[in-house]
Design a protein around this nucleic acid. Structure first.
Lengths: 343, 343
DNA sequence: TCAACATAGTAAAACGTTTTACTATCCTCC
DNA sequence: GGAGGATAGTAAAACGTTTTACTATGTTGA
């Protein structure tokens, strides 16, 4: 026999106390509301005994809060995002929040739909890795007083809370590392996007190369072409036609992944003669032969920082203005074999 | 000015119709309940016009359904699970369900807590990759009439709906592949666990080796030790002390990952002289030098099948018994360089 | 003595739905 | 002319909380 979960009403009946009193006591307002010690004790003990848990849905209906956060990423199957997700999940659960994950596929339309969907279902807050074209939608969201924190990227002319890394600096540092190791013709392979983080990375590369008096070579692939023949051909062209290229800096992890495949395809030996550096570390870069040097983003800190800001926003009282919280973290260069020049 | 979302009440007021009528119409029961065409039309048009969306929380409170599913995995940061998560997410959203992901860390206590947590918050269904010791908890869950589907593993003496692969067959086939390629001393490295899928994999290996008249060598690491020095030392011992071992079959992807690191550590050349085969494919195995042969699980089908069963369960009427749904899928052997014997 | 206040609670509305049970009006048929 | 049935709805309870406004009783102090 499946008996239903006890509700406040059941406690009320059993103890012959009013629902109100119980609610006050269980919400820790017993003292404040002048409920006597005995009654408080009686209620707490009984609640414990029957293992009472408030019905979250009823609470949500009444309070308008759902205790659910949503984490919108490009692709939850991408280890970079999956790892951050893991960290966020952990912190959220500790504070009694649950996290919904969803993949936007970097697609504005889909992102918009998801935002609407979750906004309607009244999630309490959004942690978003935004696709490039949803600035307006996010602005609307914020205007309707929903806590939003952006990660990894932001919108240039729209001040929002965010946690990013110093992409320009990291990229410049990475490029410099290649230069220091004696590479002279460094190509930068990136995504054809208006996303600020990619632009910054390209800028960092450009400046480093310029300052060293070297020539630059930027290849931008479209997000959709990457895994298709077209994308592969572009990379192939870059690496084979221009024979002078001696190192490649990839602006993001999934590019590297595809490119390594292509490089292997072109010529298995090529990888040993090419300097390789990638943004975003990955467990496998360490294992690869040669191991791949990376500019690693501080995932743990990013997750923690995103959540710190989110909880600040969740706690803030409606009336008083919250100051803009924008954190810029530093990436770490992890030099491995692939960026060593073998003479 | 933030205006609140329209509710049924607002429509009622605007159109001068009762709440009941509106609810019927919007739930498609207009005809059935003999509401006139004009009223139906009027209500539908107005709802459209003001972009009315029912409040899911109120619906949940009333109906007891939350339209939320939970997907419990070992670690959402593990690409194997992240990929399945992605597939499940996709299907769920299409049907108007959302998915909560959570990581159990293969820890019974944590799993139990999560089950309780979500059960209390009345999620509509559980898709679980169970840790070994939570059979009782899952049984309880099922007893209280919550749809549950297990993935990847199951409990031997407890009939539940599940989607698994033929681990024994896949493992045997993999081992056989190594044997066919001329390896004579194949070690099997696995996890020290009672989980059925691991036991089956070990059995497949054992049988294949036995049938070929070769000697077997099984190393079981504890889940906790894998990333610690202790685990590394064990693997190192196996590979260096017993000089006769010429191939290694890893029972799961994160083992392979750690092991490749260790192998590289011991001697960068070793990897070329060792046959390597792993369970679970990964984008990087293809890229690695040498590329790593894998026994790949059909992620897409697993996800689809899990959801197919879940929706069957969600739809079923309480009274009639659902037959046990247990799907066994086949894994695919992907031979790559690491299982080729270089003489 | 009685106004004022503190104490220890409680009743009832509200959140936004769904659903059961009801009603008012008209029509038909004998 | 009125019983019975169809038509086209509606009122109100219910889901389980939170919260506002209220009350009954006792205590104090001038």
């Amino acid at each position: 026999m499946k008996q239903k979960r006890p509700s406040i009403k059941d406690i009320a009946k059993a103890l012959n106390v009013s629902i109100t009193t119980i609610s006050f006591v269980l919400n820790g307002k017993g003292e404040e509301r002048k409920i006597s010690k005995e009654v408080i004790k009686k209620i707490e003990e009984y609640a414990e005994e029957i293992n009472y848990r408030p019905n979250q849905i009823a609470q949500s209906l009444r309070t308008g809060k759902s205790k659910i956060l949503v984490f919108m990423v490009e692709d939850i199957g991408n280890p970079f995002f999956a790892k951050i997700a893991r960290i966020i999940e952990e912190i959220a659960y500790q504070k009694g929040y649950k996290v919904l994950f969803c993949s936007t596929e970097n697609n504005d339309k889909r992102s918009r739909e998801l935002i609407t969907l979750f906004h309607e279902r009244q999630v309490d807050g959004f942690i978003v890795i935004p696709s490039a074209g949803i600035q307006k939608d996010i602005e609307n969201l914020i205007r309707s007083d929903v806590p939003v924190v952006l990660g990894d990227r932001y919108f240039k002319d729209s001040p929002m809370h965010h946690v990013i890394i110093d992409n320009y600096g990291a990229s410049k540092k990475g490029t410099q590392h290649l230069i220091d190791n004696g590479f002279k013709n460094i190509a930068f392979i990136s995504i054809d996007t208006q996303q600020i983080q990619m632009i910054e990375r390209a800028r960092g590369y450009q400046d480093a190369v310029d300052e060293a008096g070297l020539s630059s070579q930027i290849l931008e692939l479209s997000f959709d072409d990457i895994r298709k023949q077209k994308g592969k051909d572009s990379v192939k062209n870059l690496l084979t036609q221009k024979e002078n290229i001696d190192a490649v800096f990839f602006s993001t992890n999934y590019l590297t992944q595809t490119a390594l495949e292509i490089i292997k395809d072109i010529n298995p030996q090529l990888i040993y003669n090419l300097g390789i550096l990638t943004f975003d570390d990955n467990d496998f870069f360490k294992i690869n032969t040669p191991s791949i040097s990376a500019v690693a983003q501080p995932l743990q800190e990013m997750g923690e920082e995103l959540m710190r800001i989110m909880f600040k926003l969740l706690k803030k009282s409606k009336d008083k203005e919250t100051p803009l919280m924008q954190t810029v973290l530093e990436a770490t260069l992890i030099p491995r074999d692939s960026s060593r020049r073998n003479t």
